[in-house]
Write a protein that binds this DNA or RNA. Structure first.
Lengths: 125, 125
DNA sequence: GTAGCTGGTATCCGATCGGTAACCACGTGC
DNA sequence: GCACGTGGTTACCGATCGGATACCAGCTAC
């Protein structure tokens, strides 16, 4: 789902820490379990996921109902507050999509190599 | 202009690095010189300001026309791209203003000090 | 010459970030 | 008993961030 080349790393806009934005997007379609989250996040370590989830929970953006079932079962889902973030996030995504090329252009132009680095990058040129 | 208590530090949404968002807001009203920027940014160090400005410049969000005057004179201003960020930023600010209280509430409730919540999740709903 | 302003750069250093690996409690299945 | 899966926690460790400090070049003013 999120590949390591995902623009999010390079984006000048970020939600929370490194993973928070992706986690929120993962939860957009409904509650997810701890181990379910680890899959789309491409082998995020348990520690990183826990850290991000705890931060989001602390900020009230997600809630963590723990079911009292025989087997341990925890689901994370967006709270009302978390859900309210989706609209601003969408705005940012729109901006990103519209201006991504300009951003890449600018970076390329100011890269120390200055070369046209034709290493397979067939973007808009 | 930006006091150290400014919410921006605690915000779950960030533009660029620590200072980038504030710099953009400083440039919103027109070009500013290096030393002019240092004032509203409350004693940001020259290094930090340079770093942020270079990053913004690299991303094409600001431009840096250097005037060939006898005295050294450099002004920074938002590029078209940078200006296009203002609208998404406004959306985020609106979100922040609307939900800031909820966020603080959540943090307070989950702070180690917040012992008032010993009755489970029954805080002020 | 020397001080001061401008717009920086270079160096050091402590704090934080983020990843790896090991471990843990609890319940299941064999 | 033992391994296995779930949902983590802990210790460690290198990389990076960000602040403090010192320094620099170019120009002006005295």
């Amino acid at each position: 789902m999120f590949d390591p080349l995902c623009p999010s790393d390079l984006m000048p806009i970020r939600i929370g820490d490194k993973w928070a934005g992706m986690i929120i997007r993962c939860l957009e379609r409904g509650p997810r379990r701890f181990s379910e989250l680890r899959i789309p996040l491409r082998g995020i370590t348990a520690k990183a996921l826990t850290t991000s989830l705890r931060a989001l929970e602390r900020d009230g953006l997600i809630i963590r109902p723990a079911y009292a079932e025989p087997v341990r079962r925890v689901e994370y889902e967006l709270s009302q507050l978390g859900r309210s973030l989706l609209q601003p996030m969408a705005v940012m995504c729109t901006w990103a999509q519209e201006h991504w090329d300009e951003l890449l252009d600018a970076r390329e132009a100011s890269s120390p190599l200055g070369r046209t680095e034709q290493a397979g990058q067939a973007r808009g040129q």
